[in-house]
Write a protein that binds this DNA or RNA. Structure first.
Lengths: 166, 166
DNA sequence: CATGAAAAGTACACCTT
DNA sequence: AAGGTGTACTTTTCATG
């Protein structure tokens, strides 16, 4: 709901203490949040209220940031996915980043290490719309050049996984 | 639920016919899928069953791919977000892509245009875990080199928007 | 964890355009 | 014929003991 998308995570976010059941629960909900507490409980060998209690805690603690519908980019008229590396002349571009948030084509905005200083994930109707977007970016003060990587096929696209690494 | 994450979208997905109410509904659900049909109906000036009917159709048509819980990467122990460009020696690496899907650190896998042939979005515990992952990638046959861009700050991170561009 | 009240989801018949 | 409404019924949510 609110735009609390990790905007500047200067404050070191300490990882929450999660037990194995929490992580399994998170894994299930990250795949399908329409499961009822009864279903989840059956899977986790917990009673529905027990599941409810855990979910409430995970939400309250911000471990679950929200529950959203995932849309099919192609079917809503945005079949072209592109990653755009943006070279900036100064670091005082933060103000202009807010402008990009207003564009529905822009899905992600990160500042990154490496040659380019900013990385955008954008989804457009076609190459023309991408070109229009790049023109707008170039017209913004402080944005020098861009390098675009158009996605040919997407093999995986999901959110953060709670599964512990081997 | 199922792994139908746009795996090879060779078949041209024709955009669905969506009216203005559909798009507004999708916009609301893409932000917060916990809203009740009553709430949505109030917002759209529709009765709850009418909303339900539309949502059912949008789901059935695959425009809504699913409903998921969005997790806080930092709080589940993955504070380090990195985009990895992978150079491949041959195009016959598709088989090996499946192996990467099994790694919980890997969130996205795309084949892209440009110098690098593949682009990964990965979220790790720390730089050590990232290094381990890069080592694994290098050890895979057909993967030549990598260039990593570590995210310093994330200003926006959302899914495809149904809003029509100006 | 079990119980139960309140709320939401869902099916159906009817009505309006 | 399509799509919306209102009612009734079922399931889920969620607070209490």
């Amino acid at each position: 709901m609110s735009e609390e998308t990790n905007v500047v995570r200067r404050k070191p976010v300490s990882p929450a203490k999660l037990d194995a059941v929490d992580r399994r629960l998170l894994g299930l909900l990250a795949e399908d949040a329409t499961l009822s507490y009864a279903d989840l409980g059956h899977n986790l060998r917990l009673s529905p209220p027990a599941v409810h209690e855990r979910v409430k805690r995970l939400r309250h603690d911000g471990i679950i940031k929200g529950t959203v519908a995932v849309l099919n980019g192609a079917k809503i008229g945005r079949p072209l996915l592109t990653f755009v590396h943006v070279d900036t002349t100064s670091w005082a571009v933060t103000r202009h980043l807010l402008a990009l948030k207003e564009l529905p084509e822009v899905e992600e905005i990160h500042t990154v290490t490496g040659e380019s200083a900013m990385l955008l994930k954008v989804r457009t109707k076609d190459t023309q719309a991408l070109e229009d977007l790049l023109e707008r970016i170039h017209s913004i003060e402080g944005f020098k050049g861009t390098r675009s990587y158009i996605a040919l096929s997407t093999y995986l696209e999901r959110g953060p996984s709670p599964v512990l690494s081997a």
